[in-house]
């Protein structure tokens, strides 16, 4: 699943066309009388800001036609950064207008129009809340489920108010056909929300899974094996992930992404996680037979069949997608060279230590353990995996391999930059960051 520049360019072009569509709509057909530059600039910023906000409902990483082009992880990074840009553009809209002509403050005056004033004033704290809770969710102590509810609700409210505001002002949307197109875009956004929160869970409800086994890998790390209940299950590519909802209903806010740790060839599906969060710490108490729902598979963290070899740079539980790929390679007698850099704090923290040792015999695999807190007598690598370690340990013929990075943020930042500085192309590097919010 190699990234390709033409495909990335195509999707970026589609995005730009859609983001600019409101401006194009404003200048075609009958147009109103000219107004000062800064008034129209304020309006233009509002239009593109609204377009990006509406497009945020598409870049949620759950569209299977888009995600493989970039990787679901990159789509979510795009979503996150685009949210910051939209925040700036949408707030610049009233700021530029009011700075140009203070009469525009009338839009916030409840004496002129109470409902309009309430809606437009409410958008400002809503946008700030959206930004703060998304960029600093853990710092503000918001749990993931509440964040999802707040994020979905506020986003929809802001887009709804913004688009209704556009029609109400009507300066550039005079003709009924322009209003129709604008309203159509709003309905499209609302459909995406209904699809995500109603239709998709409905489809999942018809394909339940049940827990087959819960296994302790090492203290605080558990593997959950699940099997389909009355259907054929899910085909995934090693390295991908699925969203999991535990319980009898898929209509739940509680939904978390987990990489498959099992081989593509296994009859059952396995996931491995650290019991650190509220959700994963419940895994160890799960009884076989417990119902759950899976949505997926997603993600482009997948080894290309034509690739010459692979380098995995993983830390802690970030080993799970690599484990799925290695187990699949074993099952398929894949003899391509693989190098696994695996960072942990101490030897006791190494998940799958015995199986990795066995895989080194079955595959053309080199495992390089790096410990943050090595015991006396440790002769392996120490400290974070960084550019120096990669320089020392990567063989010269690894330049054409594919690189897979998954682990704690500091390790990912260090190694991503190090690989780029070594001249490795972005097309060869895959990352997986689940802790996006």
């Amino acid at each position: 699943m190699k990234y390709s520049a033409p495909r990335v360019t195509k999707w970026v072009a589609v995005y730009l066309v859609l983001a600019l569509a409101p401006l194009v709509l404003a200048v075609v057909g009958p147009v109103p009388a000219p107004r000062p530059f800064f008034v129209e600039l304020g309006v233009g910023l509002g239009f593109v800001g609204m377009a990006i906000l509406a497009l945020q409902f598409v870049t949620t990483g759950r569209f299977k036609s888009i995600a493989p082009v970039f990787g679901a992880d990159v789509v979510l990074q795009f979503h996150r950064q685009a949210g910051v840009v939209a925040f700036a553009l949408v707030l610049a809209h009233p700021a530029v207008l009011v700075a140009t002509d203070p009469n525009y403050l009338e839009f916030f005056d409840p004496r002129v129009n109470l409902l309009r004033a309430i809606a437009l004033i409410a958008v400002i704290p809503a946008l700030i809340l959206l930004l703060v809770t998304s960029l600093w969710r853990q710092q503000v102590g918001l749990n993931y489920e509440w964040w999802r509810l707040i994020h979905g609700g506020l986003s929809l409210a802001v887009v709804f108010i913004g688009m209704v505001h556009g029609i109400q002002v009507g300066e550039h949307l005079g003709p009924i056909w322009k209003q129709g197109l604008w309203a159509g875009a709003l309905m499209g956004v609302m459909y995406l929300v209904v699809h995500s929160r109603v239709i998709r869970p409905y489809l999942m409800k018809r394909r339940p899974y049940r827990v087959a086994e819960v296994r302790e890998e090492n203290p605080d790390t558990w593997t959950l094996t699940v099997e389909p209940e009355g259907h054929v299950g899910m085909r995934f590519k090693a390295g991908q992930f699925a969203w999991m909802t535990v319980g009898d209903s898929p209509y739940s806010l509680q939904q978390h992404p987990f990489s498959f740790s099992s081989s593509e060839r296994d009859e059952t599906l396995s996931f491995t996680a650290n019991a650190v969060g509220d959700f994963t710490s419940e895994w160890k108490d799960m009884e076989p037979g417990r119902r759950l729902f899976l949505e997926g598979p997603y993600g482009g963290f997948v080894l290309d069949p034509d690739s010459e070899g692979a380098v995995f740079i993983v830390g802690g539980i970030g080993v799970t997608p690599a484990m799925s790929i290695l187990r699949t390679m074993r099952d398929m007698d894949d003899e391509r060279p693989v190098i696994l850099f695996y960072g942990n704090d101490s030897p006791d923290d190494i998940t799958f230590a015995d199986e990795l040792a066995a895989l080194q015999r079955d595959l053309n695999l080199t495992v390089i353990h790096a410990l943050g807190n090595p015991p006396d007598g440790w002769t392996g690598e120490e400290g974070y995996i960084d550019g120096d370690m990669l320089d020392r340990r990567l063989p010269p013929d690894s330049r054409n391999y594919e690189y897979f990075i998954c682990g704690p943020k500091p390790m990912m930042d260090l190694t991503e930059s190090a690989l780029r500085n070594k001249g490795i192309s972005w097309r060869q590097i895959y990352t997986e960051r689940f802790q996006i919010v």
Partner: peptide, 30 residues
Amino acid sequence: MLYRDTRRLVNAIGVVLVVVAAVFAALRAW
């Protein structure tokens, strides 16, 4: 693709959109 690339891509798209909005404003004010 990388986190760093993605941020740059989105920021570049943001700049393009602001420039086009300014062109739009110039055309409308003309």
